[in-house]
Design a protein around this nucleic acid. Structure first.
Lengths: 144, 144
DNA sequence: ACTTTTAATAGTAACTATTATCATTAAATA
DNA sequence: TATTTAATGATAATAGTTACTATTAAAAGT
């Protein structure tokens, strides 16, 4: 009894737009984008579908610690870097690390199912524009 | 002009209890525990102090992705493992990995400030008691 | 094609974790 | 002791997310 997902217009547009973007949008951001194609879609529908689609392995849910949930249409294995200033999320490709983590199957008696590695820092744009004083604050904030 | 924190009774008990525990409690869990010593303390005070104390580098804030915030009185460098079934959080000591991550100072033009590695899986207790069918669901849930 | 069954939708209310506000209290300093 | 400042308890507000419900649309059965 495999679950049957209907290919509704809403669902199709959500996946389509998510795949087209490389910005790892939040549910709300995606809602705004999808609304330009389907003006009557509701936020609840976006949330519901993002949940169903990620449960079904069609898209990826990114739960970055201490920040809003984001979604990714790219199912290839990769890490993410978040900018502590502008909150943008980019891809980070580090195959050796990925390999190391994949091999870690047990820690302290725990059976490891997922290892989630995330990086935060300053993106190229913010790096340039951040004052030294601000830099201290950002790093301070980050360490907590 | 260094900030001056008063050693109030509330603050002292919060740190004391957090240091005593190795369970990485949520604000609410800690609130319940602290209330047995200070029955009139308010949840807001607990939240406020946890924030101030982690800003001040006295305790650690754990923002595990997709789950409630937790706090740790142990300031030594270490990772954490979360049980996907009972949500318990334990320490994971992996010095080589820690070392590797500390060396990663730049990715894709980002200046890396923090690398946050977290593991999720099944704790020793849950490992034993989880049925195979449930195991599939847990892993499925986890992969998203 | 028509009926029945089931899934999905829009709209909205509810919920949970966390922050902010504010009048009052307590601690530190003068 | 008086004054200043920080912290508190109580509560309201917020943000992100989930749940509910009546309605609509798709699929399956006849």
């Amino acid at each position: 009894m495999k679950l049957k997902l209907r290919a509704t217009e809403q669902r199709k547009v959500i996946v389509e737009e998510l795949r087209r973007l490389n910005t790892h949008p939040t549910a709300n951001e995606l809602y705004d984008i999808v609304r330009s194609k389907l003006p009557r879609i509701s936020l609840g529908t976006v949330y519901r579908n993002l949940e169903i689609l990620s449960d079904g392995g069609i898209i990826k849910k990114l739960e970055m610690s201490g920040s809003q949930r984001r979604y990714d249409g790219d199912m290839e294995n990769h890490f993410h870097v978040r900018c502590l200033r502008c909150q943008r999320v980019s891809d980070a490709c580090l195959p050796e690390l990925q390999q190391t983590l994949n091999c870690l199957k047990e820690i302290n008696g725990y059976e490891i199912v997922i290892s989630h590695l995330e990086f935060s820092g300053l993106c190229p744009e913010c790096r340039g524009s951040v004052e030294d004083s601000q830099r201290d604050l950002i790093q301070c904030k980050a360490v907590n």
